[in-house]
Amino acid sequence: MKNKALKKTIQHVLMITFALIMIYPLVWMVSSSLKESSSVFVDAHSLIPKEFHFDNYVAGWKGFGGITFGTFFWNSTIISVLATVGSIISSTVIAYGFARIKFAGKKIWFVSMMLTMMLPFEMVMIPQYIMFNTFGWLDTYLPLILPTFFGIPFFIFLIMQFIKTIPKELDEAAKIDGCNNFQIFYRIIVPLVVPAMMTSAIFSFYWRWDDFMGPLIYLSTPEKYPVSLALKLFSDPNSVTNWGAMFAMSTLSILPIFIIFFFFQRYIVDGISSSGLKG
């Protein structure tokens, strides 16, 4: 009993230690958002500000050139929500096709789709830029949103594995009742794969909200910048950087992610544990 207690104690101590290490950068950022800009790196070792400067949030929210951070938050919301809706709808439809419908070249198409997950973004960045430039989509949200309406391989695989856990007898019973493939998908499959869809939606929102490279490549008008790109405007090598305001807006930028995770965290567990990824 003593050995078991000692082992559990060591495990808990290690877990708490690793948790503190992981959360330290976040706590440091919140602490820095309340410090005077000039003392952020001077007192970097201290997590408790000598004086609390809540005016950093006011200064940061004012933004740049008459563009407040409310505009940047709204832009991020538009991109993240529309891209998430597009990716979930298209990925669910494609996953249903791979999991339930027989068609010529099914295995080849599936392997081709999975291979795209291995391509780094740097390989497709230039071809995509040339293509979107030909379409006249530069400095618009279309390159950031429209491609998601053609499916995301990771989400397709996740939802497809979930659909495979659903007994095919339900499909056969629906066919006997006169349902076609679309009706089976809409009435039978979709209600049962909600956990996998919600899991995919949460990941999609995270990725789109934090995306920096995409907006940097395709957007050139400051009024269209999302939060991830607007934060870069605080850092100006030709002038003094307002670090306090920058960390203040960085703190606000992670609030939507925390809120979504707090309310929908159970779907992440349910979606992954029941999707067949466990083997």
Rank of each mutant, 00 (worst) to 15 (best):
N3E: 14
A5V: 15
A5D: 12
K7T: 10
Q11T: 09
L20W: 03
I23G: 08
I23H: 03
Y24F: 15
P25G: 00
V30W: 06
L34W: 04
E36F: 06
S37H: 08
S38A: 11
V40P: 09
A44I: 15
P49E: 00
D55T: 13
N56I: 02
Y57E: 12
V58Q: 05
V58T: 08
A59N: 12
W61K: 04
W61M: 13
G66F: 06
T68Y: 01
F69P: 15
F72V: 00
F73E: 00
S76V: 04
S76M: 02
T77K: 02
T84Q: 03
G86Q: 03
I88Q: 04
S91N: 08
I94N: 08
I94F: 05
A99W: 05
K106L: 10
W109T: 06
F110V: 05
L115R: 01
M117Q: 06
M118N: 07
F121W: 13
I130E: 11
I130M: 11
T134F: 09
G136A: 04
G136S: 03
L138I: 15
L138W: 07
T140E: 04
L144R: 02
L146Q: 09
F149V: 11
F150W: 09
P153Y: 01
F155N: 02
I156Y: 02
I159P: 13
Q161H: 04
E169A: 10
D171P: 14
D171R: 05
A174T: 13
D177W: 07
N181E: 15
F182Y: 11
F182L: 15
Q183L: 14
Y186P: 15
P191V: 01
A201E: 01
I202M: 01
S204G: 06
R208W: 00
I217T: 13
E223K: 11
K224M: 12
S228D: 06
S228W: 07
L229R: 00
F234K: 02
N238P: 13
S239N: 09
A245L: 09
A248Q: 04
A248H: 03
T251S: 10
T251Y: 02
I254S: 10
I257A: 08
I257Y: 04
F261M: 14
F264C: 13
Q265A: 01
Y267R: 09
K278F: 06
K278T: 10
G279Q: 05
